[in-house]
């Protein structure tokens, strides 16, 4: 059983929480839990209610979208990455499947718990969003580059 102090230390080691004020970290730790997923196990499914987000401690996760010819992987995430921001949108619904491709250990956060604390404490709300936004911007930027099909046929010669 992981104690709150251990959880706090584990969260502090993740890039998402680097430099976070102790008071604010203590608030988010109260919504956190330690989880593990075996290779092949789904962490979340498209269309499901987005009531969590995850900090990946170790392992690898594939973001997939189902198609008639099978799952298409759109991105992989690994140690130090953050998984899941749909809990911030309305309605909070997952837009992809996330599958552990190897044994994966994460810290999960109860979105309802965190949302309540963010509503009650705007400083916490601002801090959490301030940490999510650059990650979201980076992912959107990366997705746009992927869409460009950069490695397709180049100049004719």
């Amino acid at each position: 059983m992981v104690q709150i102090d251990d959880l706090s230390r584990i969260i502090d080691e993740h890039p998402f929480a680097h430099g976070m004020d102790d008071t604010l970290r203590a608030l988010i730790v109260g919504c956190a839990a330690n989880e593990r997923y075996d290779a092949g196990q789904y962490i979340l499914r498209e269309g499901g209610r987005a009531d969590k987000f995850f900090l990946i401690r170790a392992g690898a996760v594939a973001l997939e979208i189902a198609s008639p010819s099978g799952a298409i992987m759109v991105e992989t995430l690994s140690d130090g990455d953050l998984l899941g921001w749909s809990w911030l949108s309305d309605p909070p619904v997952w837009t992809f499947d996330a599958r552990a491709t190897q044994l994966t250990r994460v810290i999960s956060f109860d979105a309802n718990c965190l949302r309540r604390k963010m509503d009650a404490d705007p400083a916490l709300g601002y801090e959490v969003l301030r940490r999510f936004l650059p990650i979201m911007a980076h992912r959107i930027h990366a997705a746009r580059i992927q869409m460009l099909d950069l490695y397709g046929p180049g100049p004719r010669r």
Binding site: L63, G70, A71, I72, M73, E75, T76, S78, T101, A142
Partner: peptide, 16 residues
């Protein structure tokens, strides 16, 4: 950039 579930490696742009 693109993969099916038969690929066990990274998916995403090289800048990642």
């Amino acid at each position: 950039d693109r993969a099916t579930d038969r690929w066990a490696g990274n998916v995403g742009v090289v800048t990642n």
